[in-house]
């Protein structure tokens, strides 16, 4: 590794540095199946070139035919793209795009803890991928909005049809999205924030 034995500077370039006044950071998580546009969305809204962080996950093996009852452990390294948006001189928003293997990223300690909320990116050509994601977010009590990523050959479902197909309660916002366009991704994040705002108790 360069940083061990040379003077090579490892870290953000000048333009990617936060001001010294940055005091607080919040995060949102983008979830969805492989190829749905998570990395694209992160890149569209991020002020820095998206970075990748990784974690090694240990999961107890599914030893169904393990009559001896020995728990096998499997180790998987999961990488996650993320980007950054400076909200003000003090406040920074991080956007994490989770990897494809849903089974593993829900094991990521601290990914959803403390997150403001999540965006479920949906490819209507593969709706079934979204069921597990949505179910897990609901189990964990993570508030989320659904963003429908349009691909050229996507069938054109009316929103209410999608809502019932995804079994979403009426209050969960469903918005259209083009992950390649910054304004579109910005609007998705705004939809999430407005939804969270309405969920939040007014200050006493």
């Amino acid at each position: 590794m360069d940083f061990r034995d040379s003077d090579t500077l490892v870290g953000p370039s000048g333009a990617d540095r936060l001001p010294a006044t940055a005091a607080k950071a919040v995060k949102v998580v983008i979830v969805g199946g492989f190829g749905v546009g998570k990395t694209t969305l992160v890149g569209s809204v991020s002020e820095i070139r998206p970075l990748t962080t990784e974690e090694t996950m240990t999961q107890a093996g599914v030893g169904v035919d393990d009559l001896a009852g020995v728990e096998r452990k499997t180790e998987t390294t999961v990488a996650m793209d993320f980007g950054r948006i400076s909200i003000s001189d003090e406040l920074v928003l991080y956007v994490f795009g989770t990897p494809g293997q849903e089974r593993f990223w829900f094991l990521w300690n601290g990914l959803f803890e403390g997150a403001l909320g999540a965006v479920v990116l949906v490819d209507t050509r593969r709706l079934e991928v979204s069921f597990e994601v949505i179910g897990r977010l609901e189990d964990r009590g993570v508030p989320f909005v659904v963003a429908i990523n349009g691909f050229p050959d996507s069938p054109d479902h009316p929103v209410e049809e999608l809502r019932s197909a995804l079994d979403l309660p009426p209050e969960v916002p469903i918005v259209a999205c083009d992950a390649r366009r910054r304004e579109s991704c910005r609007d998705v994040l705004m939809a999430l924030m407005r939804y969270l705002y309405n969920l939040a108790a007014p200050r006493a």
Binding site: V26, I85, S86, I87, S88, L91, L93, L116, R186, L189, M190, M193, R194, L196, Y197, A200, A201, P202, R203
Partner: peptide, 12 residues
């Protein structure tokens, strides 16, 4: 809290 969310909305 709402003040935090307002700040994020404003920034976005």
């Amino acid at each position: 809290d709402r003040a935090l969310l307002e700040a994020v909305i404003h920034g976005l």
